[in-house]
């Protein structure tokens, strides 16, 4: 099969980007989308042209590195898949496919389709962890956790931090990512001690980074390759509300 690609080309964050039209010929419909790009890049290199830069690593949907917006859809067509799990059979012969990077102010373009998602790392550094004593590992079942809670925490922990939620959100909000990362720890006994400071700090860091605000349209969870539910945003809103009240009225120190 043959398709026409409209690819976003941008030298770096400071220079203006533009769309370049490239032809992808003689494709196997069972190729993955990234393999198709590999083929296109091989041809570009053979012609002594600059290949299209795109992020990829595991290519099996668990690392969260790939980050393509295909025809305006972060991670392209299909539910619960990352860009690397999109196959050419999802398109028709002769289609024109628009490929763009994840677009958000806190995700500046490094080159072409590669964006800098350091903002996510900063959010994790501000509270997406539990403080534990080093030493020998604790007994596996020393702290009993109800199965339902463990399952729900696991659902939140499925987040691979790709940033599709931000890319899909009409407002470039990072609420789903932050909610998933905060909730997975807030729900478990190990994360309870730092629950309030965690949610307050992570939300503050998110706001500082310049992400937009949530307007409850749930585009995020629809685009999420792990289909993380917007319920976690509701949970984070609740946790944030109580944490703010407790901090205000119990006069807790900000960094306690």
């Amino acid at each position: 099969m043959n398709v026409t690609l409209k690819v976003w080309r941008q030298k770096n964050a400071d220079e203006a980007g533009y769309f370049e039209t490239l032809e992808a010929r003689n494709l196997n419909p069972d190729m993955s989308f990234l393999e198709m790009l590999d083929v296109v890049n091989n041809e570009l290199e053979a012609d002594n042209k600059m290949p299209v830069a795109f992020d990829h690593d595991c290519r099996e949907g668990i690392c969260g590195t790939c980050s393509l917006t295909i025809n305006g859809q972060p991670h392209g067509p299909g539910e619960g898949v990352a860009s690397c799990q999109v196959y050419m059979r999802s398109f028709k012969d002769g289609d024109t496919i628009t490929i763009e990077p994840f677009r958000a102010k806190p995700f500046p373009v490094i080159r072409d389709l590669v964006v800098d998602r350091t903002a996510f790392d900063k959010i994790i550094q501000s509270g997406g962890f539990v403080t534990v004593r080093t030493g020998s590992a604790p007994d596996a079942n020393a702290i009993p956790i109800p199965k339902e809670t463990a399952d729900l925490a696991m659902d939140a922990a499925a987040c691979i931090g790709c940033g599709a939620c931000v890319a899909a959100c009409k407002n470039a909000s990072a609420m789903l990512f932050v909610a998933a990362k905060a909730s997975q720890l807030n729900m478990l006994p190990q994360g309870k001690a730092e629950k309030d400071t965690r949610v307050l700090k992570m939300v503050a860091t998110m706001d500082e980074a310049g992400f937009g605000n949530c307007t409850n349209q749930y585009e995020c969870s629809a685009a999420c390759p792990k289909l993380i539910s917007e319920d976690f945003i509701g949970q984070m809103n609740r946790d944030y509300l109580f944490a703010s009240l407790r901090q205000k009225f119990l006069r807790r120190k900000k960094n306690a």
């Binding site: 305006g72 859809q73 677009r103 407002n171 937009g212 585009e219």
Partner: peptide
């Protein structure tokens, strides 16, 4: 809200796509 949200995405998408955001929510 509108100002902050516009600032958060200075460059829009060429192929604008909506998964399930209701028309009401997009015209608030």
């Amino acid at each position: 809200l509108v100002i902050e949200n516009r600032k958060a995405r200075p460059q829009g998408y060429e192929g604008e796509h909506t998964h399930r955001a209701s028309y009401a929510s997009r015209t608030m």
